[in-house]
Amino acid sequence: MSRLEIQKTYKIFIGGQFPRTESGRYYPLKNKKNEVIANMCLSSRKDFRNAVVAARSAFGGWSEKSAFNRSQILYRIAEMLEGRKEQFIAELLLQGISAAAAKEEVTLSIDRLVYYAGWCDKYQALFSSVNPVASSHFNFSVPEPTGVVAIISSEESSLLGLVTSIAPVIAGGNTCVVLASESKPLCAITFSEVLNTSDLSAGVVNILTGNSAELHSHFSSHMDVNSLLYYRKNKNEIKTIKENAALNVKRVHIYDKIILNSEKAQSPYFIFDNQEIKTTWHPVENIGSSKGGY
């Protein structure tokens, strides 16, 4: 008799832990043959709230890490993903994707992580400026992370969509709560395991599975979320999100036209979208200059 296979329990990822949804709800994920592959958590508004709390408390530590350190951690995530490539390919196959496409998605995801790992300590130079003000002041502007970013990631993609949305956000020092693809959620939770073993501090990335129709209004109305990224095409959800965002002047970025496997799906401007520009002024003394000293 063959050995009984151990099935994986997919949970959600909050604050570096893998709890089940507090609601106790689940939804069955089926393959093309209509067989149940896994029971996924149908995350609730409270799960989201808990995730935001985790993200907020992680923000201080993560945003203050040196850029070089963040770079190393993103690279470490890529390394860990590379090491578990086969598992992700298998999961993608399980979710009904062709072998070639599965392989491409995983390798592209790894490369995208490496791409953003490289940006961690460089985008600042790109988006900073020293501003030649007319008065006797030194004036400079630098990007700083916006804060807690809520992400409703691509529905079509299990892994690449997730990585594409998370990497620029955390490269820029933000923390985030991500809603994974509802129909292709497996890689998201397995990716959480990768994150959890990559020196990434608990709470920097939190991943929920569930239903955007249910959650998008909570994502967009939460007063402690600073920014919201939306990678889907539902016009009604977009409208509600933008409306709710006004509650606390959230930054909203709609990436409904993004093509995940194109080069254009990655750029430092995706980092910039979740940055605030801070300008600092300080007086400069004139010593012995042509102004005639003091």
Binding site: W281, H282, P283
Partner: peptide
Amino acid sequence: VWANTYNKFDPASP
């Protein structure tokens, strides 16, 4: 953030 100054404005300064 104005350090040791306040309410300064300049076209070059965001």
